[in-house]
């Protein structure tokens, strides 16, 4: 399946959870927030939220700013 991850097209195996996606991309789940189709995915739901074909996923973190 294909998703839009942070604005870029990614091909993923079907049935992947948000936690699985973070693992696959090598990101630390404690340091990021995830949005799926404009809805926030709470950290507690990372394991149970499955990613679907065509999903728009945003993964954000804190950077330096004023």
């Amino acid at each position: 399946m294909n998703i839009l991850l942070n604005g870029e097209s990614w091909a993923l195996a079907p049935g992947l959870s948000v936690a699985g996606l973070l693992k696959e991309t090598g990101l630390d789940a404690r340091k990021v927030a995830v949005e799926r189709n404009l809805e926030i995915v709470p950290k507690s739901a990372f394991e149970t939220t499955l990613i679907g074909d065509g999903d728009r996923i945003e993964i954000v973190h804190f950077i330096g700013g004023g």
């Binding site: 991850l5 942070n6 604005g7 870029e8 990614w10 991309t25 090598g26 990101l27 990021v32 927030a33 945003e58 993964i59 954000v60 973190h61 804190f62 950077i63 330096g64 700013g65 004023g66």
Partner: peptide
């Protein structure tokens, strides 16, 4: 301290 929220760089997670 103020911080900004931005997309992570998925292609370079380290």
């Amino acid at each position: 301290v103020t911080v900004a929220v931005r997309r992570v760089n998925v292609s370079d997670p380290k």
